[in-house]
Simulated assay, not measured.
Amino acid sequence: MSHRTELTSQDKGKILVYMENFNPAQIARKMGRDPTTIRRIIDRYKKTGKTENLPRSGPLQLLKEHYMMLEFILMLLQKKPFISEKHALARISWCEKYKERTAYDWAQVIFSDESSVEIGKQSRQIRVWRHKGKV
């Protein structure tokens, strides 16, 4: 396996999800990572309930802290869709309701997304385009 950069928080989250159904070697293959790295993350999570590395001292840590502060500021500036507590609870309820479905079950489902396009200020105004001479 090739050497890769440090695991992101998203990567660590994936590991926690995968560990429900896969062993560390399988997770490592799936993510293209070293199995020892995956085991360390899982062990740390089991011991501390967290996946973050323990704090270290020294100048390199100070640089990393500045980088992380910038990353945090950028995260705050990113626009995210608003999800109310009601909607969050509804999503959890939906997941609980359908969590027993298999991959075969979901292959029978068609998901669609509806959207509308508004032209001008009066969104309810009806417009019809026709070729010249057609009624």
Rank of each mutant, 00 (worst) to 15 (best):
H131Q: 08
L7I: 01
K64T: 03
D113F: 13
K47G: 00
K80G: 05
L16I: 13
M31C: 11
T48G: 07
Y98L: 13
Q122W: 06
L76Q: 14
T51Q: 03
E96I: 09
F82K: 09
V128K: 01
R101Y: 12
P24A: 04
G49F: 07
K64G: 01
G133Y: 04
R4M: 15
K121S: 07
A107R: 12
D34M: 01
H3K: 08
L77K: 14
A103F: 05
A28W: 06
K46V: 04
W106P: 03
Q78Y: 00
G133S: 07
H87K: 15
E20N: 14
R40D: 12
Y45I: 02
W106A: 03
E114N: 03
K134L: 05
M19C: 01
V109F: 12
E100L: 02
I42K: 13
I41P: 02
M75L: 11
L89H: 04
E20P: 00
E20G: 10
P55M: 02
P81V: 05
H87S: 15
L77N: 13
K132E: 11
R56H: 06
Q78W: 00
P35A: 11
Q108F: 00
N23S: 08
R124N: 08
L63R: 14
R40C: 03
A90I: 00
R4K: 14
G32P: 06
S57T: 13
H131I: 03
K97F: 02
P59D: 07
E118N: 13
K99M: 15
M69L: 10
I83L: 13
L63A: 10
K97W: 01
T36E: 12
P81C: 06
A88L: 14
F22V: 00
S9R: 11
M69E: 07
S123F: 11
K121I: 04
H131R: 13
K134D: 08
Q61V: 03
R33K: 08
L16W: 02
P35V: 02
K46Y: 03
M19N: 07
K132H: 06
L89N: 08
C95P: 00
W106I: 09
S93G: 02
A88G: 03
N53T: 10
M75I: 02
E85V: 12
S57L: 05
E52D: 15
L60T: 09
H131W: 07
R4Q: 14
K12V: 00
Y104H: 13
F72N: 05
D113P: 00
G32I: 05
V128E: 05
V128N: 01
N21G: 07
L77V: 03
I15K: 06
D113N: 12
K50L: 10
S116H: 08
Q26D: 12
M69Y: 04
R130V: 12
P81N: 14
I83N: 03
A107P: 00
S57H: 06
I38N: 05
E96G: 01
T37N: 11
L89G: 01
R101F: 14
A103K: 05
K134Y: 04
Q108G: 06
L70H: 09
K46L: 12
R40H: 08
K30S: 03
Q78P: 00
D34K: 11
I27S: 03
Q26R: 07
L62T: 11
